[in-house]
């Protein structure tokens, strides 16, 4: 019997088509980013004379400098300087990411390692928040924030977003896999609950924390509806909101070089976090969906 050749299961000249298809996919993925970057280095007249050049111009320093220090045009007024908006976004993203990790690791610890009345009721209370995103309770949430005097404050921007089920569920799942022997050994050695948490559980959770941090940083930085509702004051604006305000939705003149420079500055931090922490990012995506 002659052996058959199975070309498709072996790497060889056959991989040319896959590489080609993937190259096209990547080109489509990267194209908007490239055009945005090029536009951010051109002057407005250069953008307006269609077709726009597809190679960077020499206005990069001027554009980014102007955006960062002065802000962009939003209708007849200027937005705050982009560096201020980036600061707001940074505070928001970091507070949400760190806050969520802290309160959810504590509550997962309580639910998994203790027995107490209403334990499962509390767990279900946390779980149900999955089904109540901001989008479905816009008006009453604003009333609560107003009553608590938290409009236009960092507290209002961050604290309400700090509670969520996803992180708690992830930690709970991980804590379930800790062997009983480890807990017993710690107890025999006289480690109380907080010592066990700090010296054993926390170090074991490092990769989970890193994975969650990436996901939650993106979540916080990319928020839109929430800062739109709570940060109505210009000085509380995040960079994503500020960028969208520079686009004149009525079809009036828009300084596209400023918009694109701001867009690049708005997308750079989360993209850098994802690329640098890619391993944890993929882990985080997979784990939080389980």
């Amino acid at each position: 019997m002659t052996s058959r050749v199975l070309p498709s299961l072996k790497p060889g000249p056959h991989t040319l088509i896959p590489h080609l298809v993937v190259a096209i996919g990547i080109a489509i993925t990267a194209f908007p980013l490239w055009v945005a970057f090029v536009a951010s280095t051109l002057s407005n007249p250069e953008i307006a004379q269609a077709p726009m050049p597809l190679l960077p111009g020499n206005q990069a320093v001027a554009n980014y400098g102007e955006a960062l220090v002065q802000g962009g045009r939003s209708g007849r007024i200027l937005t705050p300087p982009v560096w201020e908006m980036m600061l707001n976004s940074t505070v928001m993203a970091l507070t949400i990411a760190v806050g969520k990790i802290i309160i959810s690791i504590l509550s997962a610890y309580a639910v998994v390692f203790f027995r107490f009345p209403f334990r499962m009721a509390f767990f279900w209370m946390i779980f149900i928040t999955l089904m109540l995103p901001v989008e479905v309770r816009i008006v009453p949430t604003i009333q609560v924030i107003t009553n608590l005097n938290m409009m236009n404050s960092y507290a209002g921007l961050t604290i309400p977003l700090i509670a969520s089920a996803t992180a708690t569920l992830l930690f709970r799942q991980f804590f379930m896999t800790i062997p009983d022997e480890l807990v017993e050994a710690a107890q025999i050695d006289g480690a109380g609950p907080m010592k066990f948490f700090r010296d054993i559980l926390l170090p074991l959770s490092v990769t989970n924390i890193a994975a969650l941090f990436v996901i939650l940083f993106l979540y916080g930085w990319n928020q839109y509806l929430w800062p739109l509702l709570i940060g109505t004051d210009a000085r509380m604006q995040t960079i994503v909101i500020g960028m969208s305000k520079m686009i004149d939705s009525a079809g009036g003149p828009t300084d596209w070089n400023m918009v694109m420079a701001t867009a690049i500055l708005a997308l750079l931090p989360p993209v850098i976090v994802v690329v640098l922490m890619q391993r944890w990012f993929v882990k985080g995506l997979v784990e939080t969906e389980k």
Binding site: P32, I47, V240, I241
Partner: peptide, 25 residues
């Protein structure tokens, strides 16, 4: 490379495509 757009805020993604699709330019 393929996963980069996932990190970008929806509004920013919208702005990039709006710019590509701006009628005159």
């Amino acid at each position: 490379i393929l996963v980069v757009p996932y990190a970008i805020a929806p509004a920013v993604a919208g702005a990039l495509w709006l710019f590509l699709f701006q009628p005159s330019i």
